[in-house]
Design a protein around this nucleic acid. Structure first.
Length: 274
DNA sequence: ACAGGAACCTGATAGC
DNA sequence: TGCTATCAGGTTCCTG
């Protein structure tokens, strides 16, 4: 699934394309994608427009002119692709379509259908625990080595599961966690509370750098991810460990390790990471 | 409180 | 070629 950079890239693009266009019609091809309410409730925003589109963690937040809010989580294979009236980029596995009054449309596609769309008549009604309990945004000034150290010193689980847990730091997934730990020379099996302040400084700065660089490259496309235009990102060409489980370390040339940690395939170098 | 595993799904790919 | 097994950018729920 898209992680923070991929979701950010999608939001930035969609904001330039669909904001303030009148939504003429909503087609729901698979009603179970709408999770918190009856799928038909979505028609409440027909005739309205999206007034703002932004990201919170890995959620895409679409605000409507009548105060309604759509939360979209892409999970593993979800996509939000804008299709111009002239240039239709047919998305595969289309589940929901928002058609605007100029003939263009926003397609929600999802191969595995693990994604989720939540609808609320107003923002105050949002009651999705996973959304309300999101932690610090790593690309804001709030994410400091001090905060990182404080959170970690209270946590006895391994650093891999700590970083994957959205209630502490939000937006990281399997790719960027492995990349950040490698860049910071920290083994994924270490407990979160075993990191010293200097390691937290290193980790904080690497997380910020890796996410920012990936956004600049349009995100990482390993398999399914596409941006709001339906095209691939380029950050996959810059990954140091993710997806290289059978290869040698690009730094020390020793064989990389691939193990299940925190329930996820984890690739790391036991020579470079301590 | 937390670790581990299953569940939710479909499709691509590796291996036999 | 064709079948089967395995794996996948995530989250949540259940059990121990």
């Amino acid at each position: 699934m898209p992680e923070l950079p991929e979701v950010e890239v999608i939001c930035r693009y969609l904001k330039t394309k669909i904001c303030n266009k009148k939504i003429n019609k909503i087609d729901i091809f698979l009603s179970r994608m709408i999770k918190n309410t009856k799928a038909e409730d979505l028609h409440y925003i027909e005739g309205q427009a999206f007034s703002d589109i932004r990201r919170r963690g890995k959620y895409i937040v679409l605000e409507c002119t009548n105060g309604a809010v759509l939360l979209v989580h892409l999970r593993m294979t979800g996509r939000l692709v804008y299709n111009d009236a002239e240039k239709i980029t047919c998305d595969t596995h289309e589940r929901v379509r928002f058609t605007f009054d100029d003939g263009s449309y926003l397609a929600y596609g999802d191969t595995r259908t693990l994604g989720a769309i939540y609808f609320f008549k107003q923002a105050a009604e949002i009651d999705i625990k996973g959304y309300l309990e999101l932690g610090v945004e790593p690309l804001t000034p709030n994410f400091t080595p001090q905060i990182c150290y404080e959170l970690m010193s209270k946590n006895k689980s391994n650093i891999k599961s700590f970083l994957l847990n959205q209630k502490y730091i939000t937006g990281l997934g399997n790719i960027y966690v492995d990349e950040a730990l490698f860049a910071s020379k920290i083994l994924p099996t270490r407990t979160a509370n075993s990191l010293n302040f200097k390691e937290c400084e290193e980790l904080t700065s690497n997380i910020k750098r890796l996410l920012t660089e990936s956004i600049g490259r349009g995100g990482t496309t390993f398999r399914d991810y596409r941006n709001g235009e339906g095209t691939k990102g380029r950050n996959q060409d810059y990954l140091m460990v993710y997806g290289r489980g059978k290869e040698n370390c690009l730094i020390c040339h020793n064989k990389l390790q691939s193990k299940t940690i925190a329930g996820r395939t984890t690739v790391f170098c036991d020579k470079c990471q301590k």
